[in-house]
């Protein structure tokens, strides 16, 4: 038994998968067969990707048919009816914040800023973002900020020293 919410998710996923598998099939079909190099057509590079694309297409179609049977296509109706609870909203915000701060560090800072500095900044920002309560004054929460700062500096230095000197990694 598939619930309505999951059926909606499955419906969207099946459409994405159908498009994805069709792209794989088309790309595999148009892939060079290397006949000029006298290569056996059965060993052409597009054979296996094409086959996998076909299997994925079949599975996506099963998912599509099943989600339609359970009413997953009623997207607009379903989303307007759904009332997200406060907890779900909070969870989504926490995930987005984690993702944002992680992406800024891993894609924005790394390789552009000194490794130790960027790591310390990331750890400090992460802790403050989740531990500081917005309603209260920062002065009253100075312990949290101070502890975050100490943890960020110590962890960053430790990771830098261990990876650079012990594991001989050329840090970014």
């Amino acid at each position: 038994m598939v619930d309505a919410k999951m059926a909606r998710k499955d419906f969207i996923a099946s459409i994405v998968l159908i498009a994805f598998s069709l792209t794989i099939i088309i790309m595999s079909y148009t892939m060079p067969r290397l006949e000029r190099r006298g290569i056996d057509p059965f060993s052409a590079p597009g054979v296996v990707p094409g086959m996998i694309g076909l299997v994925l297409l079949c599975l996506a179609l099963i998912l599509f048919v099943r989600s339609v049977r359970y009413g997953g296509y009623r997207i607009t109706k379903g989303t307007t009816d759904t009332v997200q609870t406060q907890n779900q909203k909070g969870a989504a915000v926490r995930v987005m914040l984690t993702l944002f701060v992680s992406l800024v560090y891993a894609i924005g800072f790394l390789g552009r800023l000194n490794y130790s500095v960027s790591t310390a900044l990331f750890i400090f920002a992460f802790i403050c973002l989740f531990e500081i309560q917005p309603g209260r004054s920062l002065w009253n929460q100075r312990k949290i900020i101070l502890f975050a700062l100490v943890q960020a500096v110590v962890a960053s230095l430790l990771i830098t020293v261990v990876f650079q000197n012990l594991f001989l990694v050329d840090l970014p």
């Binding site: 984690t98 992680s102 560090y105 891993a106 790394l110 790591t119 990331f122 750890i123 992460f126 802790i127 989740f130 531990e131 943890q151 962890a155 960053s156 990771i159 990876f163 594991f167 990694v169 840090l171 970014p172």
Partner: peptide, 17 residues
């Protein structure tokens, strides 16, 4: 909240290393 940023840092440097 204190553990996860360190784990993420290790994920990053571990993948890079």
């Amino acid at each position: 909240t204190k553990l996860m940023p360190i784990i993420f840092t290790l994920c990053v440097i571990g993948s890079y290393a």
